[in-house]
Design a protein around this nucleic acid. Structure first.
Lengths: 319, 319
DNA sequence: TGGCGAAACTAATACGCATTATCAACAAGG
DNA sequence: CCTTGTTGATAATGCGTATTAGTTTCGCCA
C-alpha cells in the first residue's frame, strides 16, 4: 500500500530509521500514514519468534485465580502483580488451560505446557511442587516465586514475607506482657511459610527465655498451661477462640491468642486478632519487578519483605 | 537425539502418526522417550504462526481487573470467564499493558495494541467506546461483549442481562401491592444497561396502568408523590434510604425502594433491597462459550440471560 | 566519461513449527 | 528383471517478523 518493501515497514515501525539505516522522511511519513489508516499491528507471535521476547508475563496458580468463594487469599498478591505489570507495560497470561481435574491441582508442566509462551512467570501458591521448581530451574525458564521457597536443586528466585522477625517480635511482646509459657499450634512444616513461622517462634522463646511448646493441633492446648497461643493460621485462631468461649474462658484475660497470616480459608470472624500483616500486595508488585530484572540481567534474586505487626485486642497480660 | 528429522518429531508430537502418515511404532516410541526425558514442548509462538490459533483468549477491561477496592463489580464475571476458559482449555490474557494513565481509561486500540495476540477477546465494562467497538467489527477481530451493546456500525456480539422483563415484573409486583405512582431515579442513559432498565420501567408502568416518573436525581423524589422508587444502582438505593431515614420516613412503610443491579461502587449497606440479581457469573461463562463458537463457526451471537428477582424487604404496600 | 561515496532502499535469511510433496527401500506380481 | 504398491521417513515450504548484507540511484569530482 505504501509501495515499499516489508523491510522498510519494519524499520519504520521500530523507529530504526534514525541510526545506521536511513529512510527518507517522505517515505517514512507515507508508511506511517498507511499504518494509521489500516491500524496495522505487527503479529506478536511472529515477533516473539524473532525477538525471543513477548512482553507477556505468565501467572501460575495451582487453584483458580478468581475463586468462587469469597475468602480470597490470593487477591492482594494479584492486585500488586497487575499494578506492576501495568507499569512495566506487560500483559498477564493466566494459565487457565492447565485444567483442574476433579480435586486435582493444576500442573505447571502438563502434556502441552504453554508456560514458554510467556517471557517469564510468577508463581503463586502456599506450596509449590519441588519437581516443578527444579524443572523450571533446569530448563532455564525465568520465574519468580511469590513466597520463600527452599532450594530445589538450586536456589529459587523469590520474594517472600519475612516471618521470623515478626514472630520473634510477637513472642517478645508477649514475654514483655508477662507470659512465661507459650504454645504454637499448627503443622509448622509442609509449606515454607509454616516452617518459617515456627522457626521464628522457636527462636523467639529461646531469646526471651520463656517456655515454648509446639502442638500440631489445638487438642492439648488447654492442658498445656500456656497463657498465650500462636495460631498458625487465622482460621485456627478463630477456632481456638470459639473453643475457649465454650469453655467459659475470656480472651484475652484467660488466654491470649495471636493469629498468624491472612485468611487462607473462609473465616467468619470479627475478632481483632493480634498478629501481623503479610505485605501481600507489595509482594506481588515486587515479584513482577524482580521478574523484569531477571529477564534483563539474569540472576537469582531472593528478597524478604517485612511483616507489619498488628496490635489487635487478643494479646494482654496473663491473669 | 532420536536420530530422526524434525518432521518426524512433529508428526509424533501431534499424534498424526495414526492416519495417512505412518511412523513405525519403534521410531515413535524412541521419539516419545526423548520427549519425556527432555521435557520438550513445542514453542507456542511458532505454533501460533502456523496454526493461526493460540488457545489464548484476551480479556479487556477498562479498569484494573484486580481492583484494589474491596467492592468489586467485575469479579463474578471473571469467575465465570475463568471457569469456562478452563473447560475450553484456553489461557486468559489480561491486557494490562494498555496502561492506565493518570485518570484515563485503558484503550483497546493503543499505539501498540496487542489485542491480536489472542484468538479473540472478551470485553468487560459498563460502557465501551463506540469507536472501539466499530473498529473491532471492521477489523474482523473475534470478540464477545459482556453486557448488551447497541449497534456500532453493525450488530455487536454480546451476552447481556435481560433487564426489561425483570423491570416489568418488579413494576407489576409493586402495582399488585397497590402502588399507583412510581419513580425511576437515575440517568436512564449512557450505558445500555441503564437505558434497558429505564425502558423496562416505562413499559412496565404503561402495562400496569400506573403513573411513572423519571427523575435523573433523587432531589425531586420526596415531592413527587411516588410511593415506590426504583433506584438505578444499589448505591442510589442506599443513598435514598439514608435520606428517607433522616426525614423520619420508614422504609418500606412510607416509601418502598427497589434497588437495581449489583454494587458497582463501594456501598456499605446491609439493607436487604428488593430488586434482581444480575447473573454475572453465568454471563462471563457464556461469553467465553460464545467466543469459542464465534471462532469456530463465525456469526454474531446476541443473548440475554434472565435476571432472578430478589424479594427483599424494602417493597411493601403503600401506607 | 568514468569513478566513487553516500543515500535510500530491498532481497535474502533466520526464528520454530506444521504440512505437503517427495523419496528410498522393499515386497509382491508379472 | 521390470513394474507396481506399500511402508516409513525426509526435504522443502510457508507462517510474519527483525536483521544483515547487499544493490541501485544519484550527485559530484577528476
Amino acid at each position: 500500500m505504501a509501495g515499499v518493501s516489508q523491510t522498510t515497514v519494519s524499520l519504520v515501525l521500530n523507529g530504526r530509521a534514525e541510526g545506521e539505516v536511513r529512510i527518507s522522511p517522505e517515505t517514512r511519513d507515507r508508511v506511517l500514514q498507511v499504518i494509521r489508516e489500516t491500524g496495522y499491528v505487527a503479529d506478536p507471535a511472529a515477533r516473539r519468534l524473532v525477538e525471543r521476547r513477548n512482553r507477556i508475563y505468565g501467572v501460575f496458580t495451582y487453584e483458580a485465580v478468581f475463586p468462587a468463594e469469597s475468602a480470597d487469599f490470593y487477591r492482594p498478591f494479584l492486585v500488586g502483580i497487575e499494578e506492576c505489570a501495568e507499569e512495566a507495560g506487560c500483559d498477564l497470561l493466566l494459565f487457565t488451560s492447565a485444567k483442574v481435574e476433579q480435586g486435582e491441582r493444576r500442573r505447571i508442566f502438563s502434556a502441552e505446557s504453554r508456560i514458554r509462551l510467556a517471557d517469564g512467570c510468577v508463581l503463586l501458591g502456599r506450596t509449590i511442587d519441588r519437581d516443578d521448581l527444579s524443572r523450571l530451574l533446569s530448563e532455564g525458564i525465568p520465574f519468580v516465586s511469590v513466597g520463600r521457597r527452599d532450594d530445589a536443586g538450586g536456589p529459587v528466585p523469590y520474594v517472600g514475607a519475612d516471618y521470623p522477625p515478626a514472630m520473634r517480635a510477637l513472642v517478645e511482646r508477649a514475654a514483655a506482657l508477662g507470659h512465661r509459657r507459650m504454645a504454637y499450634v499448627g503443622a509448622g512444616q509442609g509449606a515454607e511459610s509454616y516452617a518459617d513461622r515456627l522457626r521464628g517462634f522457636t527462636e523467639g522463646v529461646a531469646a526471651a527465655g520463656v517456655e515454648g511448646v509446639h502442638l500440631t493441633s489445638a487438642d492439648g492446648l488447654f492442658g498445656s498451661g500456656a497463657t498465650v497461643v500462636f495460631a498458625e493460621e487465622l482460621a485456627d485462631g478463630a477456632a481456638i477462640a470459639e473453643v475457649a468461649r465454650t469453655r467459659g474462658l475470656d480472651v484475652p484475660r484467660d488466654l491470649s491468642i495471636v493469629a498468624l497470616g491472612a485468611p487462607t480459608r473462609p473465616v467468619s470472624t470479627d475478632i481483632d486478632f493480634a498478629g501481623f500483616r503479610i505485605p501481600r500486595r507489595e509482594m506481588g508488585h515486587r515479584a513482577v519487578e524482580l521478574l523484569t530484572q531477571v529477564l534483563e540481567r539474569g540472576g537469582t534474586p531472593q528478597e524478604l519483605l517485612a511483616c507489619e505487626l498488628v496490635e489487635g485486642s487478643t494479646l494482654a497480660p496473663p491473669a
